[in-house]
């Protein structure tokens, strides 16, 4: 009888210990760990495409297809974003009505800083993207904000990206629970299926990079924002990161969110962080 009770007690103890271990594992899996995430994210792509040089991932579909890459390299001699780049440079140095310029709003006069955006603003408790910072600069100097999706905003960000070309993406996540929450929210947005097509960002850019969706070759998610803004032949013009998110959502038949909504800011934060170390290649050109 005593023996039986001992066996029962022992079994109960083992079962409890197993449950406790499993619970710890679940908690560990749910803990936000951006460093581990970024490492796993990059390794996934490096292992999936062992022949692609790490710094080439920022060239989107061209890193996936040699023929496309050769065509693009020839196009780069007279790149389609050149007009936007020139316009952006001029706009950047043209003073506002109050005599100040964009340079007054940014560290290092706005030159060579693209790799640090978006950042987490601890005062505001939110992610601030380069596009948002540019419009805030305009408004602080008495100017009307630009559309977030194209034209002037694309030109300005094209110029700022150009001054950062080759610099490694360097996004920081401060030791602030709100920053971690923003990062996690961005991650959630990236992996969440939406729209009638039931696609997440990851459905195309993690599961299927290099594959074709209709006539398009899908770009890998790794480094996808390093090339922003881009000239897209499909758009017959330039587009910003905001435009990219909006059109991706529409293509899945989801109603896009408003540009610079919290979700878009957070997903930009997540995608930029996991691309840390990869060079800025913007402005880019895409089919």
């Amino acid at each position: 009888m005593k023996q039986r009770a001992t066996v029962l007690l022992g079994s109960a103890f083992v079962a409890l210990a197993a449950l406790a271990f499993a619970a710890t594992r679940v908690i560990a899996a749910d803990k936000v760990d951006p460093v581990a995430d970024a490492k796993a994210f990059q390794n996934f792509f490096f292992q999936k495409f062992p022949n692609v040089k790490h710094e080439d991932f920022v060239n989107g579909p061209y890193s996936m297809n040699e023929d496309m890459k050769r065509q693009w390299q020839e196009k780069e001699e007279f790149p389609p974003y050149e007009f936007a780049l020139d316009a952006g440079k001029e706009m950047f140095s043209t003073p506002f009505k109050n005599g100040k310029t964009y340079a007054d709003c940014f560290p290092n006069g706005g030159i060579g800083i693209r790799q640090n955006y978006p950042y987490f603003d601890e005062k505001e408790g939110k992610v601030v993207t380069l596009e948002l910072a540019l419009n805030r600069c305009r408004e602080a100097n008495g100017e009307a904000p630009y559309s977030y999706v194209k034209d002037e905003m694309a030109s300005l960000t094209a110029y700022m990206a150009y001054t950062s070309r080759g610099k490694p993406m360097d996004i920081k996540i401060p030791d602030d629970p709100r920053a971690l929450a923003a990062y996690e929210n961005g991650k959630r947005y990236f992996y969440t299926r939406r729209g009638q097509m039931n696609f997440s960002c990851a459905s195309c850019h993690v599961q299927s990079p290099g594959e074709r969706i209709r006539a398009e070759t899908l770009a890998p998610a790794l480094g996808i924002l390093n090339a922003m803004p881009i000239y897209r032949s499909e758009w017959s013009g330039m587009g910003t990161t905001s435009r990219r998110f909006v059109t991706c959502n529409s293509q899945t038949r989801a109603v896009p969110l408003e540009p610079q909504s919290d979700e878009y800011r957070d997903v930009e934060y997540f995608l930029s962080y996991v691309a840390n170390g990869l060079p800025i290649s913007g402005p880019g050109a895409r089919p």
């Binding site: 995430d37 996934f44 991650k187 992996y191 299926r193 939406r194 009638q196 997440s200 990851a202």
Partner: peptide, 20 residues
């Protein structure tokens, strides 16, 4: 209603897609 179902199920389902 299908989009509501999607949003509800994706509250947890997205985690299965995550690269770890």
């Amino acid at each position: 209603k299908a989009s509501i179902f999607q949003a509800t199920s994706e509250k947890e389902a997205w985690k299965a897609m995550e690269i770890r």
